[in-house]
Design a protein around this nucleic acid. Structure first.
Lengths: 233, 233
DNA sequence: CAGATTATTATGTATGCACATAAATATATT
DNA sequence: AATATATTTATGTGCATACATAATAATCTG
């Protein structure tokens, strides 16, 4: 048997994956180092590095300097979710997108909100509520607070035709944020808006974004029953 | 002003991020090519490539050969969720993990299940139901179907002390899979098990994994109310 | 002028080399 | 023996160069 050649990083990755699946390299086990693999595969060490690094990023390998590379014992499945603008999400399903502004007012938020956003309790924030529709049926309600101290342009935008969801992406970049998914029993007013029975189980996405150390916006999206967030592993 | 030097890919990435945030490079706009940036930053093109590639992977840049690199017009927020073994998830929160097998039987599954798993309608699958506990309180119910044609060892495992959730990760590798998150109203039997009111809104994770073209397992996890799946952006 | 062909160009990747860095191990010092 | 120091080693990164590839732009051809 002459050495098969794995000349590009993807084929190296495939071979490594094959060995893991075939249990030639078992979970928790140390695999050969980059230099040895490079020699075996007949390629440069940097090519092996590229392949292994990529597998480590997806959680299948654990790498530590000096300690070496081992197959993850408990591979944490990393599911990458694409959180798109709702309009795109709806249109991507082949439905007609609709948008309807419900309320827009500048008010002092409840403690829960200014606590999370770390704004002074006395500061007014822009509160926008809107409904997203798919094929003229309710799709999701958006309840959003915008820090006008950070995004003053929001003050001049009425959000009548463009959703805050979309507007902010265009005009208010963020450096980092948090996102949480949960199931909630929908309150009466939201149930009315979505046209579902009160106490229905709806999917909720809560997002809070920051521009450096200042909060930009906090939003809760409630989706009509049946909504699924899906991705592949 | 002399040229600041960005000698490593992370500092190049930071500078690119800064320009995007400062809107020196606006959404949808074409940015200079790698060679020019390398010259400006005083580093090798490969260093710039590393920085830009990584930003493209996280969805902030769109890159196409010959066409060049542009700032994503609608940056799709890519949220990476770590789906860990439930025991680790519970222990990671500092709670005591508990496990309880409910049922384990070899039966012919309903059409819904063998349809999704693409197994012959007459084939029996291993059906395991179990309860995961955190600090002795119900945490999640697991309802799982295992393709014993693909994982014959499961036949000899009683799942009395180790959850299928954990056992499978160790003994049944998969090549790919699908995962879906949703909110459901809990059925009466599951409500009993979780110790919650019937019709409560609970968070559901449905996962289906494959080893090449054969389904390995299909599972639904229902979490007690209050459960949140969270990550940072 | 439409359609096929050929250049051009920006990203994508492979290579060999060098050095940086973290972490484990061995060695020296009190 | 406990602690500090040095050595070793595997991964991490940077660089210069070369060539591959995809997509656009330019050119040719009937």
């Amino acid at each position: 048997m002459n050495a098969p050649s794995f000349r590009n990083w993807k084929s190296v990755q495939d071979e490594v994956l094959r060995r893991i699946h075939a249990r030639e390299w078992k979970p928790g086990e140390l695999i050969p180092n980059e230099a040895d693999l490079a020699e075996e595969f007949g390629c440069a060490r940097s090519t092996v590095n590229r392949a292994l690094r990529s597998l480590a990023e997806s959680g299948l390998l654990d790498r530590r300097r000096k300690a070496g590379t081992r197959v993850a014992a408990q591979p944490v499945a990393k599911a990458t979710l694409d959180i798109a603008v709702i309009r795109h999400e709806v249109e991507g399903r082949g439905s007609k997108y609709g948008y309807q502004l419900l309320t827009r007012e500048l008010t002092v938020p409840p403690a829960r909100v200014c606590g999370a956003m770390q704004t002074p309790a006395s500061d007014a924030l822009l509160h926008v509520r809107a409904l997203h529709l798919a094929d003229d049926a309710p799709y999701a309600v958006e309840d959003r607070w915008i820090n006008i101290g950070v995004v003053p342009q929001a003050h001049d935008e009425d959000f009548a035709t463009i959703s805050a969801n979309e507007w902010l992406l265009k005009y208010a970049p963020y450096t980092h944020g948090e996102i949480a998914f949960s199931a909630v029993q929908v309150a009466e007013d939201d149930a009315d808006i979505l046209g579902v029975a009160p106490q229905s189980a709806v999917f909720a996405i809560d997002r809070l974004t920051w521009d450096k150390d200042a909060s930009v916006t906090k939003v809760r999206l409630l989706f009509t029953p049946g909504y699924q967030l899906r991705t592949s592993l």
